[in-house]
Structures are given as structure tokens and as C-alpha cells.
Design a protein around this nucleic acid. Structure first.
Length: 363
DNA sequence: AACGCGTGGGT
DNA sequence: TACCCAAGCGT
């Protein structure tokens, strides 16, 4: 590509962005971006769509308008507010990052890429995005959108992730000295609205004349990606244990790993062979009809729900009784909200069900 | 370096 | 329907 052409690219994109850029809650129209808003939105947007993030972002900003209030909040409150958004390590890291910024940086997010990179939950993409959007530093923010747009612009046939180093260099060379933040956001808007994964709308693209993917007629097929393998199905049980006063037993999951720190309906392991083991309390369990199905990133899950009622019992380790009307406010991930909905549909409160073939303490 | 880590919407 | 995918990070 000639120098003249490559120099024209940022200007064309910025002009397009000025006219057609999206209006999003974390973009301050005509005002200087707020680093806290930029950081919060970027963490939420990791592997997550704008549509999914919008309500969560507004809720967080209302509940914790600045990083000090977020840092002072109990982690469980943050997990409750994050529940349903997925990738819960982000919520734990968000809270840890807020505390680190307050304790080590006087409550202001650092400006340099290197310092940002040291903070929990901030990797190369997010550090670049914050540096560029919040502080207008000339850093690229290379996410999935940018990888797609630039793969097409240069008709890169090397599949991802092998092409990442090349794409990163292309992105770096494209960043303009001025308006680096707008440029980063413009590139993502272009990918989200025009240079979409399927059926890109090349007719209205500001880069259509320079796009080799379009010229070669392969834009819609790029970027190439290495094949991903199939995911297994795992099975398990969940124990819906209600108490006579209208409360249900919930359990806190271990702090790390899948759904770390979140609440759950107590259950068995999730394995490819239906597991055997002990229920959390001795009771008469009955199997509810149907299954709860859910798909995680790396496996499908089928949960069979067993229900029982007790008069009273001391909660087992990591468990506590929660009034059923308060369950919705708990830090329950989506899979567990499905379990709760399934159980509540089948088990009317205060009408204890007799076990048909009681098995005590075992399922 | 490859894998674990959620969810809901689009096609 | 059964994929595919989205502003990635931590280990």
C-alpha cells in the first residue's frame, strides 16, 4: 500500500465515526471521557455484546458512581450486581482492581500502558483501550472486531490466532497521532455495524476503496480461523431443599474456577457419567420431572433436580438458608437461575411433598 | 501455548 | 437446529 493511501485511512474512518458512531452510555458526548467509565465498560465488554452490557453498566454506575465507592463495596455485592453477565472472574478482578487503584494510585487509573497492564483484569487489549480512549494516548486496541476488519483490509489468509502478531503491527501503524481514542472506538464501531462477521456491508464502508478483502471478493469469509473441537456433555444433580418456613438452602461456590464465588443450589459434581454421592442433608428426595440444560464455553450441562422439605436443619458447610422471595437478589449465575425456576415451577411452597421411594441421604 | 472461563442473541 | 459469535484475561 502506498504511503498516501495508508495515511488516508484514519482520516476516512474518523470522518465516518463523527457521522455514524454509536451513541453508548459510556461515551460522553462532547465531553472528556471519564476513565472510571471507560475502564468499567471495557471490562464488561470483554467477550460480551453491547446489548448485554448496557443495563449492567447503568446499574453499576448508579450503585457505584466512582472507583472509591466500588472499592469500598463488599465483593458479594459486586457479584450480585454482576450475576447473569458471565465470566465471573471479571467481577472479582474488577473489585480487586478498584482496591488496588485506590490504595496504590490515589484513586486514579494510571495513564501508562505498562502500569495499566499490571492491574488485575487488564490485559493488552484493555490497557490499550483505556490508554487510548481515556487518555488519548496513541495505542491500538486490538479486539475481535479489529482483527476482523484488518484481516479483511489486508486480505490476510493466515488463520487466527496465528495472524495476531501481524494484525497487531498493522493496527499499531494505523493509529493516528491525534484522536487515538476516537480512532480505537471508530474501528470497533466499524466492525460492529458494517464490517460484521457475516454479510459485511461493503457498499457503505468508509474503507471500501482500500479493502483488499472486498476487492478480491473474500471479505465475508475472513478472518480464517483454526477449527475448534466439539464440547462434551456433563451431568449432575441439584438439591432443592426447602424448609417449612419458606426458605431454601443455597451454597457459596469456591472462590476460583467455574462460577467462582457465586451462589448455587447445592449439587453433585458435574461429570460425563451421572455421578453418585451424598445429598447435603438427610431427607426424602424426589426427582423432579425434566432436566435443566445449559451450555458453558467448554461443556454442555444437564442437571436433574431433586427436591425435599425439612422442618429445620443446621446449614452444611458454605450453605445458608435464604427466604425464597430473596433468592432473586442473590449472586446466582444464569445456570442456577434456571435451576431455581425449574424447582419453583414444580415445588409449591409450604406444601411439602411426600417422597415416593425415600432414600435417606443418598441419591 | 493452550486451555478454562458464561451468556444470550443472531443466522 | 446447531452452530457461531462478542470491546480477552489468567494460568
Amino acid at each position: 500500500m502506498t504511503p498516501a493511501l495508508s495515511e488516508a485511512l484514519p482520516g476516512k474512518l474518523l470522518a465516518w465515526y463523527d457521522a455514524y458512531g454509536r451513541d453508548l452510555p459510556w461515551r460522553m458526548k462532547g465531553k472528556k471521557p471519564d476513565p472510571y467509565s471507560v475502564w468499567l465498560s471495557e471490562i464488561m465488554l470483554q467477550q460480551t455484546t453491547v446489548a448485554a452490557v448496557r443495563d449492567y453498566y447503568n446499574k453499576f454506575i448508579s450503585q457505584w458512581p466512582n472507583i472509591e465507592t466500588l472499592a469500598a463495596a463488599p465483593l458479594d455485592d459486586v457479584l450480585k450486581a454482576w450475576a447473569g453477565l458471565g465470566y465471573y472472574a471479571r467481577a472479582r478482578n474488577l473489585h480487586a482492581c478498584a482496591k488496588a487503584v485506590v490504595e496504590q494510585h490515589g484513586g486514579s487509573l494510571p495513564r501508562s500502558f505498562e502500569e495499566l497492564l499490571k492491574l488485575p483484569g487488564i490485559g493488552p487489549y484493555t490497557a490499550g483501550a483505556i490508554a487510548a480512549i481515556a487518555y488519548d494516548a496513541p495505542h491500538p486496541a486490538v479486539d475481535g472486531n479489529v482483527e476482523r476488519v484488518l484481516s479483511r483490509l489486508h486480505a490476510i489468509e493466515t488463520p487466527l490466532p496465528d495472524s495476531k502478531p501481524l494484525i497487531r503491527k498493522i493496527a499499531q501503524d494505523l493509529v493516528p497521532e491525534k484522536r487515538a481514542g476516537d480512532f480505537a472506538q471508530a474501528l470497533m464501531d466499524l466492525g460492529a455495524t458494517i464490517c460484521t462477521p457475516k454479510s459485511p456491508n461493503c457498499l457503505i464502508c468508509p474503507w471500501t476503496d482500500q479493502c483488499r478483502g472486498r476487492i478480491f471478493g473474500v471479505a465475508g469469509t475472513l478472518p480464517r480461523k483454526s477449527a475448534k473441537k466439539a464440547i462434551p456433555t456433563r451431568k449432575g444433580y441439584a438439591f432443592w431443599l426447602t424448609r417449612n418456613d419458606g426458605s431454601v438452602l443455597l451454597r457459596r461456590r469456591p472462590e476460583k474456577g467455574l462460577l467462582g464465588g457465586m451462589m448455587e443450589v447445592p449439587g453433585s459434581e458435574w461429570t460425563e457419567k451421572l455421578p453418585e454421592g451424598d445429598a447435603p442433608l438427610i431427607a426424602s428426595w424426589r426427582k423432579l420431572p425434566g432436566k435443566v440444560e445449559h451450555t458453558f464455553t467448554h461443556f454442555h450441562l444437564e442437571i436433574t433436580v431433586l427436591a425435599a422439605t425439612v422442618v429445620d436443619a443446621k446449614p452444611p458447610p458454605y450453605c445458608r438458608w435464604v427466604a425464597v422471595q430473596d433468592v432473586d437478589a442473590e449472586a446466582l449465575p444464569s445456570v442456577m437461575r434456571k435451576v431455581v425456576a425449574h424447582a419453583r415451577k414444580m415445588v409449591p411452597l409450604r406444601h411439602p411433598v411426600q417422597g415416593r421411594s425415600p432414600r435417606h441421604g443418598t441419591y
